[in-house]
Design a protein around this nucleic acid. Structure first.
Lengths: 247, 247
DNA sequence: GCCGGCGCTTGATCTCGATCAACGACAGGC
DNA sequence: GCCTGTCGTTGATCGAGATCAAGCGCCGGC
């Protein structure tokens, strides 16, 4: 019903590419969850949809962050770089997650699409105004930021003190939880990882080779199967859990 | 000269135990910075001062977080534990920093005093109400939480990808920046670390021995002096910086 | 079909930091 | 004074994971 209000960069076809806010796929998960349908219209007015292909970089560390927004579909990574090229993925973003700093400034981390992704972006200043007018949304953003902080700190324990096996086991369980398909007859779950081995290594603070070897170890131990490509079948979730770090 | 003003927990003396909010030592740095003198009175009404000795634990991971507040003086650490006892310090808290989660729930990290510390605590629910009524304070809290998140992520790069030397050099520079006394005639700065070698190791994801050895290396390289105790004199800040990770 | 490139795996070796162990410096108790 | 415990330093050795190197499977281009 709000179709005509859809942001459009060119052509009518694009108007069909995304649902209106009211039937947005992440309506219930994103920040917007706390807005009434009426308020949504207001938000809609300043929003702009964007599609990025897997591999494309959305924002570069060092740039001025002029937009923020919600991830609607797909998966993004946030990466910190050392000046000699070493990198560490400091966060993974899933549909419904909020992106950017409404309040300020220079970006510290680059954001890149792991898979084809759809975003709903707002000019920073306009969104800040929106937050000012909708305390509930600001409150929700605060709560989420605190959750993200807790998560980051939990990951510091893993990065600082975890073994390679613990890191990978934890990662696989997280992926399984995120993409949890229904288990098959034997209780196995197959997931198609959106990350390459190198990217997994960058999440876990390991090297490609170590990730690959640990995968093999888990396979030989009967915990997982590696049917090919980036697929992983989790055959023994309890076994994996016992190898993950219990924080 | 302020000896008599030492904290006490009940009775009339308590009113005298700490300065009034208006001349609080962290008045300009803490969350309260955004409140008017009038609003401060309101906040004062729900606040409770507390003194903790160095080494004491303020909150345990797993507990219900029933208070939050500001650190007035001293230094605290936040620690994440693995169930087998491994630990990782996930954050250091300085005067003016905010402690706790106004919104919710079970604490994920333990908070322990590194030095004798003074706090200004609020019952969680009352503080939440206060936030509701003072949007500016909530906004400031949001901004700070985001800064803390950026900091945590930056530290993930160091933990995941940094060498022992990079970790320690970065740590010493951070300490120097925090406790930056005026340089002496030769441009050296001496700081008295509030952390033991073991605690430094827990911040950096290293062992005591590695921290100690790196200290010795830096000393032999002429970057620092170790006059004894927990003192460190930084003789060559540029040299240290060149060994720290440039993010 | 063949070729070239990329991502993944596997093997061999190396190295940094962990681990194990001993010892010295210092503080508190008595 | 002596004993004991804690903290920090240093040395010897070990080992997990990094690094170096080779090869395989797969896909797209032509």
């Amino acid at each position: 019903m709000e179709k005509r209000r859809q942001p459009r960069r060119r052509g009518v076809a694009r108007a069909m590419a995304f649902e209106a806010c009211a039937d947005c796929r992440v309506r219930a998960k994103a920040l917007c969850a706390c807005l009434s349908d009426l308020e949504l219209v207001q938000l809609d007015r300043i929003s702009r949809h964007k599609h990025v292909e897997g591999g494309a970089t959305l924002m570069w560390a060092g740039d001025e962050g002029v937009v923020c927004g919600n991830l609607i579909a797909g998966m993004l990574k946030m990466t910190a770089f050392a000046d000699d090229g070493r990198e560490q993925i400091v966060g993974l973003l899933y549909p419904g997650d909020f992106i950017g700093r409404p309040q300020s400034g220079e970006l510290l981390f680059s954001i890149m699409a792991l898979t084809d992704s759809d975003l709903c972006l707002f000019p920073r200043a306009a969104f800040q105004t929106m937050l000012d007018d909708h305390i509930a949304m600001e409150r929700l953003l605060l709560r989420r930021t605190m959750l993200a902080l807790d998560e980051a700190r939990q990951r510091m324990l893993l990065l600082g003190r975890g073994t390679a096996a613990e890191k990978l086991a934890g990662f696989l369980l997280e992926m399984a939880a995120r993409f949890g398909a229904v288990p098959d007859a034997e209780g196995s779950v197959t997931i198609d990882l959106p990350l390459s081995r190198g990217q997994i290594a960058d999440v876990l603070g390991l090297t490609i080779e170590t990730v690959s070897r640990q995968m093999t170890h888990f396979r030989i131990a009967g915990l997982i199967d590696l049917p090919g490509g980036r697929s992983v079948t989790i055959r023994d979730r309890a076994g994996l859990r016992s190898r993950a770090m219990a924080g």
